[in-house]
Design a protein around this nucleic acid. Structure first.
Length: 581
RNA sequence: CGGGAUGUAGCGCAGUUUGGCUAGCGCGCUUGCCUUGGGAGCAAGAGGCCGGGGGUUCAAAUCCCUCCAUCCCGACCA
């Protein structure tokens, strides 16, 4: 009965650190947070920082193993980089200042600055810079699975947004853009495999590249109600367009300009500050209104314009402006820029600010906008004639129901949890840190880089968000902490206990990861705990079945129960597990 | 960082308004009996710096000041 003799897993619930809770901890809001606490998978050490207990760690290791296999399949090489990183590298790349308070910073006893790595571009670029000097050594794909640290302003939702989390990050180094494209496609394929193998429903979407910089990027979204991101995807499966709302595009059918341009007029609109109020008072539809919103950046003031029935996508605006900070202007700024309180801004006659307009604005005829004067609006405003935008660029926040930019079908909306992202970085870090190699002609060139992350602990939480019912977690079999729990219904009946032991040993001996609930609890307690923890298969050993030479297989996901003969339990269990895989 | 809320046993909570005796309840935990197919029952126990510090008072979980922690909404962000 020793562990060694089986060479597999051996675990009795009586001896397992699996502190299940009957009640939902008050601090947990989302379902994965609640269930991972209740089912005894983890405990909080500090806000956004958790200890993973044995079952959670098994799940994490399974996810990691799947990731390793897929990274290795694409030629990735696993390494381990430090968590503690010297400030100098971050100063060289410029991110010591840019990253802001999210970066956990610390000093050593000599007062030297360090940080806890939120990501590892700097470290790996400096490593490769020293060791890889020839085009003959490229391409190179290096990855690690490592703790990451981000001092989130608001850690929340348990493992979904922690301050310490486990991440797989791979960095690709290529000679040129074409090489990067190949590496990127490899990773895209690897990610698709990883999340499929984890048993998750997901969708790769076109994404914004954010502060990391770079051009092409996709996010891998696990679809779940609790997701923090909004995803827009084409209703036509063949088209396949899908994008993060931050980045989603659409188009509007150009309506030919038929109306004659009428004369610009000022009208009184007392107390009308919102689009709705103006439409009601003037009896015009919102698509006739030029919504003008004042922003400030670290460089200038900006007036952003979209149609009254649209919303501004601040990410798009930010990207259009080449600035570090972008904020909605406060009341005083609005007053000084427009000469009017908030609600009466308009592009006509506005000076000292950059006018940024959505393309739809340029197609408007005889529109309405604020007059830059309290309680006044302008009507019959016409772009070009009455004002000229400095920049015309897509600023629209795209919503469900609008047309797909590729095929024109209707776009749908879903919530997603971002579990992975692939980036084409280009030469941003290699240039900043001087990472170059010599090409065939002996010419020094910067590496063309990509970076590719998977949130491992977040993936575990996302799996729970997508797989649970009112009884508890329902693990996809591929990442379940154990495949099977054997539950003897009685604690007294020696024959029954013996049968349960035999099944338990038989399953483990053939590689099925099995635990036995040997606690002196009543059957109901064991059943409820088993449902809560979410083992894919439960083998129930009871006296009635045993009298007929049978035990019961209970399948967690669909609740199905089947009787199987004692002499074929292992075969039957394996068959069921294969079906689930 | 702005707004809101909460800190009392491992978990969930009452008690605080109106200061007062030994700080309570349910679950969980320990021991015994009993029970054994969906969170049983009886009995006896263990377990508290009432978030920390300072103050008011004869007396503070309760009132005042302050700090801290945690959660929610927002803003922000790989």
């Amino acid at each position: 009965m020793s562990i060694l003799s089986k060479g597999g897993t051996e675990m009795r619930i009586s001896n397992l650190l699996l502190p299940t809770l009957r009640e939902v901890p008050a601090e947990a809001e989302v379902i994965s947070h609640q269930l991972l606490l209740r089912a005894g998978f983890m405990r909080k050490a500090a806000a956004g920082v958790y200890t993973l207990l044995p079952l959670a760690w098994r799940v994490v290791r399974k996810i990691e193993q799947i990731i390793r296999e897929e990274m290795d399949r694409q030629g990735g090489q696993e390494i381990m980089m430090p968590i503690i990183q010297p400030a100098e590298l971050w100063q060289e790349s410029g991110r010591w200042d840019v990253y802001g308070p999210e970066l956990f910073r610390l000093k050593d006893r000599h007062g030297r600055d360090f940080c806890l790595g939120p990501t590892h571009e700097e470290i790996i670029t400096s490593l490769v810079k020293g060791e890889v000097n020839s085009y003959k050594q490229l391409p190179l794909l290096l990855y690690q699975i490592q703790n990451k640290y981000r001092d989130e302003r608001r850690p929340r939702f348990g493992l979904m947004r922690g301050r310490e989390f486990i991440m797989k990050d791979l960095y690709s180094f290529d000679r040129d853009q074409a090489g990067l494209d190949v590496s990127y496609n490899k990773m895209y394929e690897a990610y698709t495999n990883v999340f499929s193998r984890c048993g998750l429903q997901f969708r790769p979407v076109v994404a914004d590249s954010g502060a990391i910089g770079g051009s092409d990027t996709h996010e891998f979204m696990v679809l779940a109600e609790s997701g923090e991101a909004t995803v827009l995807y084409c209703g036509d499966e063949k088209c396949g367009y899908a994008a993060n709302q931050e980045r989603a595009e659409t188009f509007s059918a150009a309506s030919p300009i038929t109306n004659a341009l009428e004369q610009l007029q000022t009208v009184a609109t007392p107390g009308c500050r919102t689009v709705n109020e103006v439409t009601e008072l003037l009896n015009v539809p919102p698509e006739k209104i030029i919504k003008t919103v004042i922003y400030t950046t670290d460089k200038e003031n900006v007036a952003a314009m979209v149609r009254g029935d649209r919303e501004i996508n601040e990410i798009k605006l930010y990207n259009a402006l080449d600035c570090v900070r972008l904020d909605l202007a406060d009341e005083q700024t609005v007053q000084s820029v427009t000469g009017a309180p908030v609600g009466y801004a308009g592009p006509v006659g506005l000076s000292g600010v950059r006018l940024v307009a959505d393309p739809e604005i340029t197609k408007m005829v005889n529109a309405v906008c604020g007059a830059n004067e309290k309680d006044k609006h302008l009507v019959n405003v016409n772009p070009q004639r009455d004002f000229k935008p400095d920049v015309i660029i897509d600023l629209r926040l795209v919503k469900a129901g609008e047309p797909c930019p590729h095929c024109g079908s209707e776009l749908h909306e879903a919530r997603g949890i971002e579990v992975g992202q692939v980036f084409k970085l280009g030469t941003k870090y290699s240039k900043a840190l001087g990472g170059t190699f010599l090409d065939e002609n002996g010419k020094a060139k910067p590496y063309v880089m990509g970076c590719y992350g998977i949130g491992v602990t977040r993936t575990m939480a996302a799996a729970v968000e997508q797989n649970y019912d009112d009884r508890g977690i329902i693990w996809p079999v591929q990442i379940a902490p154990y495949h099977v729990i054997v539950v003897p219904v009685s604690n007294k009946d020696q024959k029954l206990l013996q049968a349960a032991e035999t099944i338990y040993n038989g399953l483990n001996a053939t590689g099925v990861e099995t635990v036995i609930d040997d606690r002196p609890e009543r059957a109901g307690v064991k059943f409820n705990d088993a449902d809560l923890v979410g083992y894919p298969v439960r083998v129930t050993v009871g006296s009635k079945g045993l009298a007929n030479g049978q035990v019961e297989l209970y399948l967690r996901r669909d609740g199905e129960t089947v009787l199987v003969p004692l002499n074929n339990v292992v075969g039957a269990v394996k068959a069921k597990l294969r079906q689930m895989d």
